[in-house]
Amino acid sequence: MIRVLVVDDQPVVAEGHSLYVRRVPGFEVVGVELDGRSAVERCAIGGVDLVLLDLDMPGMHGLEVARALQTMPDGPDIMVLTATRDVPSMRGAVRSGALHYVIKPFSFATLRAKLLHYASFVAATTGEREVLDQGEIDAALAALRDPAGPQLAKGMSKETMVAVRAAVRSAAGGLSASRVAEIIGASRVTARRYLEHLADTGGCERVPVYGRTGRPELTYRMRMLPAPDA
């Protein structure tokens, strides 16, 4: 049984994550902590294999928690669950030992997939022994990853989604479905379907453009990061 500590400063969110974990075979929740310092103290006691860690918490930021856990002998593994979307935070989490970086909000299916991949990694790396060859190492690391990526709706292709993401990312001010269709060489209906999927899953945001007759035209752009505190 893999023992999980849930760390999130919002009690309702922490409880929701705990309920998800309890639904996955082979995992048990051994505690819930609402701040970083308490999480570090709980892990120092032992009996925790995996920490589901929020980043933006008052007092002790999640990256500080992750670095503290990395200094513990036989410390727990870390999976970041956060609403923080900026690339520096993602890179910081990876450098601090995070095995996964999951954007909130997410579905049960998403967390379940990450946990099961983690369980496969644990199974492949258990025991004090030498690995046979590079292939065994590669297979163990691959167990952490989902080669298919997030689930797409029926009839949607990963290649087209990659193209749509690249198109939206290329224009900071946003693009209409018609313009994206031109860029990727698809119909407007197809482009709009992929853009709506991206918007629904948090990959981009819808921005209405006013000033013309009739209904405002929707454009799609990468989500804007909040301005840093002054």
Rank of each mutant, 00 (worst) to 15 (best):
D8E: 12
R145E: 12
A124L: 03
I45E: 15
A163E: 11
S187W: 13
I183Y: 05
G185H: 03
G155N: 14
G46V: 02
L63D: 02
H117M: 07
T125I: 10
I103K: 03
T71F: 04
Y101K: 06
E128Y: 06
L19H: 03
P76R: 07
T201N: 10
G155H: 06
D86I: 03
R206K: 11
R192I: 11
T160Q: 08
M224P: 00
A39Y: 14
V122S: 05
P58V: 01
P88Y: 11
V6G: 03
A39D: 14
T125K: 09
L52C: 04
G135W: 10
V94L: 13
V102S: 06
R3Q: 14
R37F: 10
V122T: 09
R23Q: 06
E128G: 02
K104T: 00
V40A: 09
G214R: 06
S187Q: 11
R223D: 09
A123H: 01
L52D: 03
S120V: 01
S176E: 12
T82L: 06
G214A: 09
V131A: 04
R193Q: 10
R169H: 11
R212M: 07
I45P: 00
D54P: 00
D133M: 01
H100T: 05
R67A: 11
A98D: 01
A166R: 10
I184T: 09
V4W: 00
M222V: 08
A171H: 07
L141C: 02
P216Y: 15
V94F: 13
A44C: 12
P147N: 02
G203L: 10
T201R: 11
G203F: 09
M72Y: 04
L99Y: 08
A119M: 03
T190L: 11
L50K: 08
G127E: 02
V12R: 05
S120Q: 13
K114N: 11
R223W: 07
V122G: 00
L132C: 08
P58W: 04
K104L: 04
L19V: 09
P226Y: 10
F121Q: 01
A199F: 05
Y20D: 09
Y194K: 02
K104M: 03
S176H: 07
H100C: 08
R223S: 10
L5P: 02
T201E: 14
F106N: 00
A163Y: 07
G16I: 02
M222R: 02
L111T: 00
V94S: 05
L69R: 01
T190F: 09
P216D: 12
T160G: 10
T82N: 08
R67M: 11
Y20H: 09
A66P: 01
D86F: 05
K158F: 12
